[in-house]
């Protein structure tokens, strides 16, 4: 067990969420749930983050931002997709402008379903991701490349 899981700092990105999931994430910070109990801090800065928490689906406007943020987070890092939008596009899946879930661009480690996802399940998802974070750290120390290839095919397709 390393310190990583005792001090996970989040970067929360709203890809194109309806704000429903975002409010639930913020609810986790309130006295009611108080995730700081677990050392969780919501940083606004990818350079300081360990867990990338994304709400909403991807589209033409935000796909580069999503990838950029992901790349700026130092390893080891995990991605948690919050809500069904982030997982698959959710209720907006069929929209002409929606490209789908975020896993089309970046590797997702934990999916937290729900529309909106409840704070309890969000916390649950993040705690689950801590285990993966630890695994990645171990792999990193051993020198095994853990970074799954990014889904460049979709990215390219999206760009066209």
């Amino acid at each position: 067990m390393t310190y990583l899981s005792k001090s996970p700092w989040l970067l929360h990105y709203n890809a194109s969420s309806c704000n429903g999931c975002d409010i639930e994430i913020l609810a986790c910070l309130t006295p009611m749930y108080d995730v700081e109990r677990f050392g969780i801090i919501n940083t606004g800065n990818p350079k300081h983050a360990d867990i990338f928490v994304v709400t909403g689906s991807i589209n033409e406007e935000n796909k580069d931002v999503l990838v950029n943020l992901y790349e700026q987070i130092p390893d080891p890092k995990v991605v948690v997709a919050i809500g069904i939008c982030a997982a698959s596009g959710g209720v907006f899946r069929e929209c002409y402008n929606v490209m789908g879930g975020i896993d089309k661009l970046i590797p997702v480690d934990v999916y937290v379903p729900g529309c909106a996802a409840r704070p309890e399940s969000i916390i649950d998802g993040i705690v689950k991701s801590l285990g993966i974070l630890e695994e990645k750290r171990t792999a990193m120390v051993k020198g095994i490349p853990v970074k799954p290839e990014m889904n460049t095919a979709v990215r390219e397709a999206g760009t066209e």
């Binding site: 390393t2 310190y3 005792k6 001090s7 080891p76 750290r137 990193m140």
Partner: peptide
């Protein structure tokens, strides 16, 4: 602090 020193 420990975490920070474990990062890339």
């Amino acid at each position: 602090l420990g975490k920070l020193f474990e990062k890339e």
